[in-house]
Design a protein around this nucleic acid. Sequence first.
DNA 1: ATATCTCTTGTACAAATGTACAAGAGAATT
DNA 2: AATTCTCTTGTACATTTGTACAAGAGATAT
Lengths: 232, 232
Amino acid sequence: MSPMPKAPAAADPRSAILEAAENLFSQRGFGAVSLREIAREAKVNVGSVTYHFHDKSGILEAIYTRHTRPMNARRLELIGEAKRIEDPDERLTAILRAYLLPAFSSSDDLAGGGARFTRMRAILSAEGNPQAREIIARSFDKTTRAFIDAIAECLPGANRNDIVWRSQFLLGALYYTLINPQRIDRLSDGAVDGSDQEEAIRQIVASAFASLRALARPEACSAPQLAQTEQQ
Amino acid sequence: MSPMPKAPAAADPRSAILEAAENLFSQRGFGAVSLREIAREAKVNVGSVTYHFHDKSGILEAIYTRHTRPMNARRLELIGEAKRIEDPDERLTAILRAYLLPAFSSSDDLAGGGARFTRMRAILSAEGNPQAREIIARSFDKTTRAFIDAIAECLPGANRNDIVWRSQFLLGALYYTLINPQRIDRLSDGAVDGSDQEEAIRQIVASAFASLRALARPEACSAPQLAQTEQQ
DNA sequence: ATATCTCTTGTACAAATGTACAAGAGAATT
DNA sequence: AATTCTCTTGTACATTTGTACAAGAGATAT
């Protein structure tokens, strides 16, 4: 019946492997996924995997080089746009969105894309696998510095170290939400869907905005001050 | 020479195993640590491990039951104290500290303790191992609801779902900081030590305070509003 | 047609894994 | 002194892992 009696599901075996691997890595991490599992999912022989990528970590490397560049390019582009906004508060919001949006929906050609890749990075960062660590470090995100700089410009008088901390927390919030969306469902008694990505972005942006905004030198009507400094 | 020619390093082999396992799990997760590694580290035979804990997941279960109860008891105690504070802002800060402090330094008898256990949970949550998931779910933290309730009382007019989101982000910030402290070092060009736990607590509390505080109905001098609702 | 090149397949292998279990050590109880 | 109980040890075993490699399929080039 079928025109291809025994052919693989995807046209190109190379991208079928990448697709399968990224899928599995983003669900269970690097170490817990076996080459044979990837091969089976990609409808390809095990030997074919090592032929195209040599190593298990070769697959991971290919996934990274495929996503990182377009994602960061998009980020820089959006940050550039955001920087032209005059009002500091609106600008800050735009910058936060510029960082988050490409992490969820990557460049158009990669179907499903961005969120899965970000989720994978979240799991890998926790796994601490040395091979993965090395790849992560190599493709390290210079964009993050541009991002922090752009934030700092919205927050006159803010301490830069505090900004670093809070942008770290932003990343933690993003990662944990991608890893553990069910927790939101449970704690809200089903009122919220933790997997709703649009809502997640809105919430992360709103939360990070409030967190960062409080660092700026109190202007006109001062923001509520940090309680720790016991101001009278 | 030595008075004990072949004796194990720690007095009680059971706790030596737990100690070693928790140490390893908190560094590399559940799946990536082998029974033999635990046994070696505890200076104990492999068979002895399965004798005392039957399973690999039996070890994890023992670690959980050892920490969870005292940690949550301490949390509830501190939340109780915090609730007696009149000023809502100071109370909110105290509640946040009530949640975080026991996550870092657990009950005194468990040496080194709390942060390691929390770090372990962070890694396990990302790993998504089904055995681990089951144990996590079983010892699920009713305390978290008490925590959210207490927060809600400090924030009149706040939407509860928003509070759920932002407390989720708080947990994400905590976890990611425990997992990836080096990132802070790098991004601050060494100006900040991401492993400084006291500073980490301060920063998380301050950030979460600002994030949550912005949810309250704007009072006297209103906090800077969320940019998304474009208020004029 | 013959040779070359690219890729797929199947199989092989050493290493490591979780678990099971027989044998016995050492103290406590009878 | 004999028995029982608790725990440790060492070994065995099936399974799974990443990787290596020989054999060949199928197209393209000569």
